[in-house]
Nucleic acid binder design. Structure first.
Length: 318
RNA sequence: GCCGAGUUAGCUCAGUUGGUAGAGCAUGCGACUGAAAAUCGCAGGGUCCACGGUCCGAGUCCGUGACUCGGCA
């Protein structure tokens, strides 16, 4: 690696767009490794419902940051960032450019915008206390408390967004420092190429509906049942994972299976829309590729080789 | 054929004693310095089945027709 900057290939796109497949094929062609930027692939035991790539789908390509923890010990963005940066460095030092692939926009941005993340562990007890306090005095009042101790942070947080108010207060109470003071970011410190996979919405929705039916056939209910019987249902609910909370409701008799599946479809569609806020069609830093294009892989490979060749970096075998 | 109920947004439906229409879902857009598959905000969209009548004014009242769903033959 001649270039002193760390180099990285990034693959983004909404759920069910074919990121995993493209990343594996790119990795094989370029003889490199994959780093997952998917916040739900971290957890052991969440396989079917998260559409985690299987061993055979990985086709022998080394994948990092998959099954690296359990729901009892949720990873934060900070932990992801620390590990991802370390892996990028390691793989670069082997003369390879890793492929960062995932649908968690915030995580991708934390890498490309070099967010500096304070490593403050979450405190579930404190969070619950703050949430209960908000129930008593109201979201707005809790936000007003934040405004007193950290007006800068309050200014950037919608008072209706309780979750962010709670997080800001949590950080302040745990560190004694202002939340707003712990924030900083910089320009992209990496030499990175971002590939995006795009689909017309209606087609993507059809792919998602099909995939959800497949998940049910592959035994999503049994997978969730296992987690529930291990007493993990409350943890799963607090993390909030599409496909799991709905099936828990089914197992608890709050929904029929049909209602649960319908709700999974709905929630996945909403997810696709909010996901698109992180990967926009007019983002000049993303090279968008048509997901339906049979030549997707060839085009992605050409783009990648050309991009790095312009900087004197030759990828793959001649 | 007769009797009843209905026809309003893409879907399911509200709509007061007549004053040119609302909700939920869906759809689209957006925020987000870190719990993010989370949390939250905004918007577009209607020949009110058709035609005629009454009225200053009809989604609303009257008539005729079309279609849908029940019940009876």
């Amino acid at each position: 690696m001649e270039n002193k900057k760390q180099a990285l290939i990034i693959v983004v796109g909404p759920t069910a767009s074919g990121k995993t497949d493209l990343a594996v094929k790119l990795a094989k062609a370029l003889e490199t490794e994959v780093i997952s930027a998917d916040s739900r692939y971290f957890y052991k035991g969440l396989n079917i419902g998260t559409a985690k790539p299987t061993k055979s789908e990985m086709q022998g390509v080394t994948h990092h940051l998959i099954d690296c923890t359990t729901v009892d010990n949720p990873w934060s963005l900070g932990e992801f960032r620390t590990h991802a940066l370390k892996l990028i460095k390691e793989i670069n030092s082997k003369g390879k450019i890793p492929i960062l692939v995932g649908g968690t926009g915030q995580y991708i941005r934390a890498i490309t915008k070099n967010w500096n993340v304070p490593t403050i562990e979450s405190d579930e007890g404190l969070r619950i206390t703050l949430e209960n306090w908000a129930k008593l005095i109201g979201k707005k009042e809790l936000w007003n408390k934040l405004k007193i101790v950290d007006p800068e942070a309050a200014k950037k947080i919608d008072f209706r967004n309780l979750r962010r108010t709670v997080r800001a207060l949590e950080v302040i109470l745990k560190t004694g420092k202002r939340f707003s003071g712990l924030r900083n970011f910089s320009d992209n410190p990496l030499n990175s190429l971002t590939l995006g996979i795009s689909w017309p919405r209606d087609l993507l929705y059809k792919r998602v509906d099909f995939r959800i039916d497949q998940m049910i056939k592959q035994g999503l209910v049994a997978e969730v049942n296992d987690l529930v019987s291990q007493g993990r249902d409350e943890l799963l609910r607090r993390i909030g994972i599409i496909g799991y909370t709905e099936i828990i409701d089914y197992l608890e008799g709050k929904l029929t299976l049909e209602q649960a599946v319908k709700l999974i479809r709905k929630n996945t569609r909403v997810f696709i829309r909010t996901q698109s806020n992180w990967f926009k069609a007019d983002d000049p830093n993303i090279y968008w590729l048509d997901g339906k294009d049979p030549a997707l892989l060839v085009k992605a490979l050409d783009l990648t080789k050309n991009y790095f060749a312009n900087q004197g970096i030759i990828l793959g075998m001649p």
